[in-house]
Design a protein around this nucleic acid. Structure first.
Length: 658
RNA sequence: GCGCCCGUAGCUCAGUUGGAUAGAGCAACCGCCUUCUAAGCGGUAGGUCAGUGGUUCGAAUCCACUCGGGCGCACCA
């Protein structure tokens, strides 16, 4: 019994442990076979199933059902499960005993952690996420990194790991040259005094647009001739196309044309944008070599120019404050915000160290690390002497390993940068950084309903703040509607605003987190704030319904007597809810196995779903006996804790009344 | 040209790394509020898992090829 108590944290592991002994009588290494014990695919098979008998049959040359039988006979599981059943070709099906469920629910009742005790194998994990560029407003693209990274940090901390969340902001890049140039040439002083960040963003955008204008204009005829060439090539190819191979080439040529023509169209559009505005055109003509001059400003900044550094120090604080405003609203905290600038002094040392170890060498004027299997080199210093983000990232790794003593470093970054990270990790290993575990926790692009990266109608990226405002105002409408429908509304205006914030932000975060992170995901307002289905609201609603039960019965959840109550798991709904609650530890462990928060959303949805059925079928107020009512109250309370805790690991809040 | 990823229901997505009859939400249709929040519950319908071949007791999952789509690829981060 003691054993059950200690290792219940992850119910599956508890069961797996019991198979080790019996399996050892048949094989030397039971580990791979133990892994083949899984949650059952279908409730009719019980809660767990063991799938190892079939592959083992081949290895041992015995019928699988016989092997299953042999193992089943040796199993000592009767404190947990009913007698194992052998089914189909040789599956072992396990069904949890009602007495076990009842006892375990009783044991963890009233516990916000649902019986999950902190790990004894604590790791020191640095999580690098969000990483916006300073002085460029955050947009929808930053949302995924921020939300996923935060969820991972929270879950790691919950399990008991030492976590350092680090916002590796872009505060040193080429955009600062543009801003400095803009500041010197186009500053609107009144606007800067009023809203410095907005004005800096405007300057950045302006300088960028003008640089672009000149570059595009210079490039336009080339683009046009490339487009024309592509068309000619297609026509000749079309005339000659005979076999399938040629046909395939035609297709790829057609795609080339499409791309070339789009490039021309985009170029013309961006030129038009400038030329259609007299002010912009005048500015463009007055600053013909704006791009080079902006680059010069960056170089001056990096080489220690006093004036530019003064400006930089002046720009940074309001920009950081603007970022923090967004993070505060999202409920996200960083342990440190060490931007690229922080690592600037270390960059020469990184390069010379790589050179001294014969890892980096000069190629076409740039200092590069060549890696096996990679066509492109990893450039650590450009021909003009400037360092790249590769260099910064290496310096950052060194800092995280040496100063932060990291065992593991996670990078929550767009999957399009996977080659960079593959090269970075490979270089770091060659460099001799030690036994740190690196992982690029990659994620896909946020798409619009049109299947293209999410943009506003005018083609701009969507600002993060307006996105949050939109979510909250949509949520407010729903909250208003719902509360107005009641005979006597339960919420004051201030409470409605608070609930709208919780529901709106929760909806946005949940929508993102419930997709597996690798895939691109389609941003859809109607879905994330729908009043039906698999949304944050569904869980929040389930939570509020529990609160409603206690409110109606004039009981307080805080003073609920949870110990000494016998938990009933007689009805299918009670049973399912109990099983779900006990699977919490497994869900948490699955999330951290490969940093996939969506496995937690799945568990949350299943749990809320189990509760909804329970709510429908198992009345608390009208339970047949006082004993049963107590049992159900404890289940309700535990389910509310489960939802609150689970959502909190995703950075999502709950409300007593919805 | 080289490399990586993807293709599952009308739509949006899962599918626990090779297991039993491929699942959920939305949309559609049918039912359920005098009892704890109907933002809910129950049910029906919906599939050539892009295609072909292979590996084996067993494949959406692994391998090969084909078709279709996306994304990277020396001095931007």
């Amino acid at each position: 019994m003691r054993r059950v108590f200690e290792s219940l944290m992850n119910l599956l592991n508890l069961i797996r442990d019991r198979f080790v002994g019996p399996l050892k009588t048949l094989v030397d290494d039971p580990a791979p076979f133990v892994d083949m014990i899984r949650p059952a695919q279908d409730a009719k098979f019980g809660e767990f199933q063991a799938n190892f008998a079939m592959p083992l049959a081949k290895q041992l040359g015995k019928p699988p059902r016989e092997i299953a039988q042999t193992i089943a006979q040796q199993l000592q599981l009767d404190d947990i499960c009913e007698t194992p059943e052998i089914a189909g070709p040789g599956f072992i099906n396990l069904r949890l005993k009602a007495s076990f469920l009842s006892a375990q629910i009783g044991r963890i009742s009233g516990d916000d952690r649902l019986g999950y005790s902190p790990t004894s194998s604590r790791r020191n994990v640095v999580v690098d996420f969000s990483s916006p560029n300073v002085a460029k407003p955050m947009h929808v693209g930053h949302l995924r990194s921020t939300v996923i990274g935060d969820a991972i940090c929270r879950t790691l901390r919950f399990v008991g790991h030492q976590v350092v969340s680090d916002n590796h902001i872009g505060d040193w890049g080429t955009q600062f040259g543009m801003i400095i140039y803009g500041y010197r040439n186009f500053l609107d002083e009144a606007a800067y005094a009023e809203q410095p960040v907005a004005e800096l963003a405007r300057l950045y955008k302006l300088v960028n647009q003008l640089s672009d204008y000149h570059a595009t204009k210079a490039k336009l005829t080339t683009l046009q001739s490339e487009s024309a060439t592509a068309r000619t090539r297609l026509e000749t190819a079309e005339a000659q196309a005979k076999d399938d191979k040629a046909k395939k080439q035609l297709n790829s040529l057609r795609k080339d044309i499409e791309a070339a023509e789009k490039a021309v169209k985009d170029a013309i559009e961006s030129i038009e944008k400038v030329e259609s505005s007299p002010t912009l055109l005048k500015a463009a003509q007055a600053h013909p070599d704006i791009a080079r001059k902006a680059r010069d400003e960056t170089a001056k900044l990096h080489s220690g120019d006093a004036d530019n550094n003064t400006l930089w120090h002046q720009f940074i604080p309001p920009c950081l404050e603007a970022l923090n405003q967004v993070y505060r609203r999202l409920g996200i905290k960083f342990d440190m915000t060490l931007g690229e600038s922080y690592f600037n002094p270390m960059l020469p040392g990184v390069v010379s160290s790589l050179q001294s170890k014969n890892l980096a060498k000069l190629s076409e004027g740039a200092t590069c690390v060549f890696l096996e299997g990679n066509a492109a080199p990893f450039i650590v210093q450009k021909t003009d002497g400037a360092y790249t983000y590769a260099t910064t990232d290496l310096a950052t790794i060194q800092y995280r390993v040496e100063s932060l003593k990291a065992d593991e470093v996670l990078y929550v970054v767009d999957k399009r940068q996977s080659e960079h990270f593959q090269q970075l990790f490979a270089t770091a290993c060659l460099w001799g950084i030690g036994t740190v575990r690196f992982q690029h926790v990659s994620f896909g692009t946020v798409m619009g309903k049109d299947g293209k990266p999410y943009k506003t109608r005018s083609g701009d990226t969507v600002g993060l703040e307006s996105l949050l405002d939109e979510a909250v105002s949509r949520a407010r409408r729903i909250v208003d509607e719902n509360d107005d429908r009641r005979e006597s509304p339960l919420l004051t205006s201030e409470e409605r605003a608070r609930v709208a914030e919780i529901v709106g932000l929760g909806g946005i975060k949940y929508a993102d987190l419930h997709h597996s992170r690798d895939s691109d995901y389609t941003f859809d307002w109607d879905k994330m704030l729908a009043t039906t289905g698999d949304t944050a609201t569904y869980m929040q609603y389930a939570y509020a319904r529990v609160c409603g039960i206690f409110r109606k019965m004039q009981l307080s959840r805080d003073s609920l007597q949870t110990s000494g109550v016998t938990i009933s798991v007689e009805t299918p709904e009670e049973r399912r809810l109990a099983v779900q609650l006990l699977m919490f530890g497994y869900a948490i462990d699955s999330v951290l196995n490969d940093y996939r928060p969506h496995l937690l959303t799945t568990w949350l949805y299943d749990t809320a779903d189990a509760f909804s059925q329970f709510f429908d079928k198992c009345s608390v107020q009208n339970a047949g006996s006082e004993e049963l009512r107590k049992s159900r109250l404890v289940l309700c309370d535990l389910m509310a804790r489960a939802i609150k805790t689970g959502l909190s690991l995703l950075g999502i809040e709950v409300a007593e009344v919805l």
